[in-house]
């Protein structure tokens, strides 16, 4: 449903994505997009949403080239990496606003309950704690039933209980046959919910494969180890120990 062909993007001289081709077609699959900080995960996601404009290349969503289009976004739920909102609004107003903008059936009530947000609904968003804001962010994302979910670091700032609930939520969507893309640096999360891994490095897809495949390829017992070994092929592992100034 999402097809990326020869996507090339640079910011000024900084080449972030170099002729990257990638497709997510299979329903009910959770793909974890991994990679070091600054490897271009967010850039890739934003390109799909039309927030970042590719230097070259083509992106199709639901069969249509997305360039200059906006209606396809109605079928994608996006969780941005950073959750900050207008200072003067309250959470309810924010939800009402998005509902007003999209005019579709929502399930925000259930989500508010799930994340125990009721008591925070009437506070100005500026006064919410970081984790609470992330919950508001999550409600905004999941309140629409869409074929595609794109989540940029969904667990950031959440407490363990909330993370468990989030996992259940994502899992539920998968069961319903949704395509889920997520980025994260928490390997246990990948281990728990992802079906496959897309590893970005130097603007290329360094590795793509299912979780079992990944473990097998790198003879690792868990994803964390697999990724560590994957990276070890790239740079010397001793580097981590030379941090102390001599």
């Amino acid at each position: 449903m999402i097809e990326i062909e020869q996507l090339y993007k640079r910011f000024g001289k900084n080449e972030v994505l170099k002729d990257l081709s990638l497709a997510f077609r299979q329903k009910g699959i959770i793909s974890a997009i991994l990679g070091p900080n600054g490897s271009g995960k967010t850039t890739l996601i934003k390109s799909i949403l039309g927030m970042v404009l590719p230097t070259r290349g083509r992106i199709r969503a639901f069969g249509e080239d997305i360039r200059g289009r906006w209606t396809y976004r109605d079928k994608i739920s996006y969780l941005p990496q950073i959750a900050r909102f207008p200072e003067n609004l309250r959470a309810t107003e924010l939800f009402d606003m998005v509902k007003d903008l999209r005019q579709r059936d929502t399930r925000d009530k259930a989500l508010i309950e799930l994340f125990e947000l009721e008591e925070h609904l009437q506070k100005p968003l500026a006064y919410l704690s970081g984790g609470t804001r992330q919950k508001v962010n999550l409600v905004l994302t999941f309140m629409y039933d869409n074929p595609v979910y794109i989540l940029d670091e969904p667990t950031a700032g959440l407490d363990p209980l909330s993370i468990i609930r989030l996992k259940q939520l994502i899992h539920h969507e998968k069961e319903c046959g949704k395509i889920v893309l997520l980025t994260t640096h928490i390997m246990s999360l990948v281990e728990d919910i992802a079906d496959e891994v897309v590893f970005l490095l130097d603007g290329h897809i360094h590795y793509r494969g299912s979780i079992p495949q990944l473990k097998a390829d790198y003879q690792a017992s868990d994803v964390e180890q697999a990724i560590a070994r994957l990276l070890a092929g790239e740079e010397s592992p001793e580097k981590a120990f030379t941090l102390n100034p001599s």
Partner: peptide, 13 residues
């Protein structure tokens, strides 16, 4: 950030 939120919505830029 609010703008980014809106950018992800089905609204012309």
């Amino acid at each position: 950030e609010f703008t980014e939120l809106l950018l992800a919505q089905p609204i012309p830029r």
